[in-house]
Design a protein around this nucleic acid. Structure first.
Lengths: 207, 207
DNA sequence: CATTTTTTGTATCATTCATTACAAAAATTT
DNA sequence: AAATTTTTGTAATGAATGATACAAAAAATG
């Protein structure tokens, strides 16, 4: 029963690139240029490989895109959610969530890219097969992590028993996209960030 | 001083199509397929003209896209904002805003397209010249209409004197995109609509 | 009616696109 | 060392792309 891959050395010429590293480069290109805007040449250049290697490894462009989404969802581990969960209390958790969105998801090298899922993937949900269910799964997964955080806060007495976790999780998730839209439109980061404390109040406060 | 266009009949063969009608058809194609996803053939087919007419009238693809954005912003008159302004009081105004977003912006014929600006235009803000300032103008314009609505509500006593109009306008505008993301990802419209009353409370309530 | 001006439709341009043949290269196996 | 297997790089594929050249068509002007 040795299904493990690295069990025995593989036959034939070894790959000259790391499959995951190349995939991450592809994510960045799709992120920056969109699905249709990213050409195979753009992708292979960024990935450091030639087209035959791309097709042999990941399939065609659509398959590669799906692989990118799955990889992003599976291993990039959304940093705003991480920040939310690792904060010392629920107040700073909510703040950290929004802060990370602004300073990580927006400040990637060349400008404001926003969230990969909501700024790139969603735009081809209608045209690229198999994207919609992945997006739904991502939403559900994210919200469940937020709900779990609220529930933990209830247990330690930071939130009232009747705090509507699910509703606030959706609110928090929805609220997340507004700032991204603004920054992508060229509004200064500091300007958008001014509302950060206010968002925290909206999510946690109110009754 | 007769600068008017229709003052005298124009020389040469008359255009066989209405410039604005064709432009609206182009908007719909860009909306549905994105900037890069929409080909000249897609556009000319939908507009009912041939490529030479397109280039002679609107310039190249990028110019046409800019013209589409300007036309959309200038004359399509965002129906959610209209609904907000025409409601009998501020409560139903806010509800009507979100309701219209869900049932008009999302139910366009073939599926959930979301807002043209936030689902299509924003994705090429980095790649297509001149898009960013248009987006910023759109945001500012929309928020000012919301603020104006809140201020009117203050005058007739529907809102307290210290109601933070600008902040709530931004909140309302930001909140608007969450549902669009969900619907575009395939979540049922009714499911998303359940939060409608809650959003109203968030915008108007809270202190 | 001939001239002028503009639009139309056809047909075509060079590029770029996604995708693949193919032979050389680099590894393991016999 | 020969055979086998897989990857690599070059080069090419047909199709689609954005953009035009050009002549016929349709209007006003002289």
């Amino acid at each position: 029963m040795n299904d493990t891959k690295n069990d025995s050395k593989k036959l034939g010429r070894p790959k000259s690139f790391n499959e995951e590293v190349a995939l991450e480069a592809a994510v960045e290109i799709f992120w920056r240029k969109g699905y249709h805007g990213a050409s195979i040449k753009d992708l292979t250049s960024a990935m450091g490989i030639h087209s035959p290697s791309l097709y042999a490894t990941y399939g065609d462009k659509e398959s590669l895109f799906i692989r990118c989404i799955e990889h992003y969802m599976g291993s990039v581990s959304c940093s705003p959610l991480d920040a939310f969960e690792n904060a010392k209390d629920i107040q700073s958790g909510v703040s950290a969530f929004f802060e990370t969105i602004l300073h990580h998801a927006c400040e990637e090298q060349n400008g404001a890219l926003g969230c990969f899922l909501s700024s790139c993937v969603v735009t081809c949900a209608d045209t690229v097969e198999g994207v919609k269910p992945l997006l739904q799964a991502a939403i559900e997964y994210s919200e469940q992590r937020l709900v779990a955080g609220f529930e933990r806060a209830k247990l330690v007495g930071e939130l009232a028993e009747d705090f509507p976790s699910a509703q606030r999780a959706r609110l928090m998730f929805d609220l997340r996209q507004g700032p991204l839209f603004r920054v992508r439109s060229g509004v200064a980061l500091e300007e958008v960030g001014k509302d950060l404390v206010y968002w925290q109040g909206v999510v946690l406060g109110h009754e």
